[in-house]
């Protein structure tokens, strides 16, 4: 990879200041960024590591809200987000154990890989993304593949999840990468049901609103029977056609409801 300067600040303020320099990227767990730098697809002049900032780490519960620091690893979320079992299970299924010991929720969300797991939980729960500058509702955060509402130099500090009555994530793995070939996150709250789909769309994570309506009226797998997920705009690659992914969306939604 190309060479770069490495900096590891101890506070959010220092990190934000360091990120003002040109060609500077934040580095969280690095489990996606480092491989892409090896391929020379990314060439920052400086990396600012966020993993030395204690304020960005940890899982806490306050009333009905679970808050996760942005630099909290997947392994920690899997072990400590017991108040939100569906989220803990999702975190425990990302990558592999060694990846989960490095990868972080903030890094995953800022990257917004169209096949990543976390975006579906954030969108499917209606979570709030907290940055050093503001709070962003999940519905406003994801902005297409590898794109988010984050401004240059803005970093995620935490994610706040309203804990749903019931929730479940069903991941159907792409056999090589073990990312989601299609993943469906279903959450039932007092306000209704949200269904978020990852891995399937060329536009990244999205909500399946027809299913949400049907499930808000009747939270059973059968409620989805009469629906068909559209194949329009879904990904076509070695691992599946748009039609296949559309079929998976429906199957996984039913399974998530059954398991929630």
């Amino acid at each position: 990879m190309y060479n770069f300067d490495f900096e590891q600040p101890a506070s959010v303020e220092a990190a934000v200041a360091a990120l003002q320099a040109e060609d500077t990227l934040p580095l969280s767990g690095g489990q996606t960024l480092i491989p892409s730098m090896k391929q020379r697809l990314n060439a920052p002049a400086k990396l600012v590591s966020l993993t030395g900032i204690d304020a960005l780490k940890g899982v806490s519960v306050d009333g009905g809200t679970l808050t996760i620091g942005a630099a909290t690893t997947h392994a920690t979320v899997a072990a400590e987000a017991t108040a939100y079992p569906a989220l803990a299970a999702l975190a425990g299924g990302i990558g592999d154990p060694a990846v989960r010991n490095r990868g972080t929720i903030g890094g995953s969300l800022a990257n917004n890989d169209p096949s990543a797991c976390y975006p579906s939980a954030v969108l499917g729960t209606g979570a709030t993304v907290v940055t050093n500058a503001r709070e962003i509702a999940a519905d406003d955060f994801f902005d297409g593949v590898f794109t988010t509402a984050l401004e240059e130099g803005e970093i995620i500090t935490a994610v706040k999840f309203p804990i749903p009555e019931k929730a479940n994530y069903q991941k159907f793995e792409q056999p090589a990468s073990r990312f989601a070939l299609t993943g469906v996150f279903v959450a039932k709250t007092a306000d209704g049901v949200r269904v978020a789909v990852t891995g399937a769309s060329e536009e990244g994570v999205f909500r399946w609103t027809e299913a949400e309506e049907a499930l808000s009226a009747n939270f059973t797998p059968e409620a989805v029977d009469g629906l068909t997920a559209s194949a329009d705009g879904l990904i076509s690659d070695l691992h599946g056609t748009p039609q296949y992914r559309a079929s998976l969306i429906k199957t996984l939604t039913k399974r998530a409801v059954a398991a929630a």
Binding site: F6, Q8, L27, G30, Q31, I34, P35, L47, S49, T51, A75, P97, A98, V99, N101, R102
Partner: peptide
């Protein structure tokens, strides 16, 4: 795979300076 502070990590996906 090696252990860093007791946790298994992929040493090819971590910078040496992160292990300082």
């Amino acid at each position: 795979v090696v252990h860093v502070n007791g946790k298994a990590v992929k040493s090819c996906t971590m910078f040496a300076q992160e292990a300082a």
